[in-house]
């Protein structure tokens, strides 16, 4: 047998038209969309001159002149995180149970899943804007925003866990003649409780991060103070706030991952 002299790697997409068509489409999109990005050199040049004062602001942070507001802002972010985490921890359980195909009738499942999808599709800031209009400026709107966001997060992940638990244990409990609540308490809960606590802590960590930005739209927290400082070109205070945020985010992340490791 004559040995072959050529070899080509088999392409991932076999259809030639599809393969090159996709490539052309992607390139065309990038070119069209890319051409719409206006980069204004004059404006950037102006901005660069600010770069110096911005950087010097970050390297000479000013904690004192607006110190009171920073402390209040941080405190507000923390309290918003605590309250919203507590509320969402309780409220996410029923919606997670309702979103588990193996536990509830189909119509309940569909309603709960739709609710989850709605909540999850909107960024915290979008919710923040709406709740600020409804409840007025301040941390109350923030708490509601963070709470809903957390419910969406914990609810979805917990529901996925519940759908993956072993059905044998549930059947065993059912076989004893237990009612629905007893099945959940003895068959489902023991299998997901550790994961649920882990999720809640992880989510509290995320909530704290979000609490730093929803203030930009008026929903309370350190973000409000940062926004004010930036609008006043007060880079020294902004630098101080950013440092505080970075440190706090790292600390909460550290605590949250340590606690989660201990539980598991």
């Amino acid at each position: 047998m004559e040995t072959q002299k050529t070899w080509k790697k088999k392409p991932r997409i076999k259809n030639v038209f599809l393969r090159y068509g996709l490539l052309v489409l992607i390139l065309a999109y990038l070119i069209i969309a890319g051409s719409e990005i206006n980069i204004d050199p004059a404006r950037i040049a102006k901005g660069w001159s600010r770069m110096g004062s911005l950087f010097s602001g970050f390297f000479h942070p000013d904690f004192s002149s607006r110190g009171k507001y920073i402390v209040i802002g941080v405190f507000e972010s923390l309290t918003m995180t605590i309250l919203s985490s507590l509320l969402s921890t309780f409220l996410s359980i029923p919606i997670a149970l309702g979103s588990s195909r193996n536990l509830v009738p189909k119509w309940v499942y569909l309603i709960c899943r739709t609710l989850l999808m709605l909540i999850r599709s909107f960024h915290a800031v979008v919710m923040g804007i709406i709740f600020v209009i409804m409840f007025g400026y301040g941390p109350f709107a923030g708490v509601i925003t963070l709470m809903l966001n957390s419910i969406g997060f914990i609810g979805k992940l917990l529901a996925e866990d519940i759908e993956n638990i072993s059905s044998e244990q549930i059947e065993a409990i059912k076989a004893t003649g237990a009612n629905w609540f007893q099945v959940v308490a003895y068959g489902v809960w023991p299998q997901i409780s550790t994961r649920f606590i882990g999720l809640s802590i992880y989510r509290a960590d995320i909530s704290f991060r979000q609490s730093t930005v929803i203030g930009i739209v008026g929903a309370g927290g350190i973000g409000t103070v940062l926004n004010t400082a930036m609008n006043r070109y007060d880079y020294n205070t902004a630098g101080a706030i950013l440092l505080v945020i970075i440190v706090l985010v790292l600390v909460t992340e550290y605590i949250s991952s340590n606690v989660r490791r201990r539980i598991v």
Partner: peptide, 25 residues
């Protein structure tokens, strides 16, 4: 990496708007 991760994109936007002006960029 740590600095970039710890600051939310909204906050980055606040800073960048001052540097390059508001807009898609």
């Amino acid at each position: 990496i740590v600095a970039s991760r710890s600051v939310n994109s909204m906050i980055w936007a606040m800073i960048l708007v001052q540097l390059v002006g508001p807009g898609l960029f």
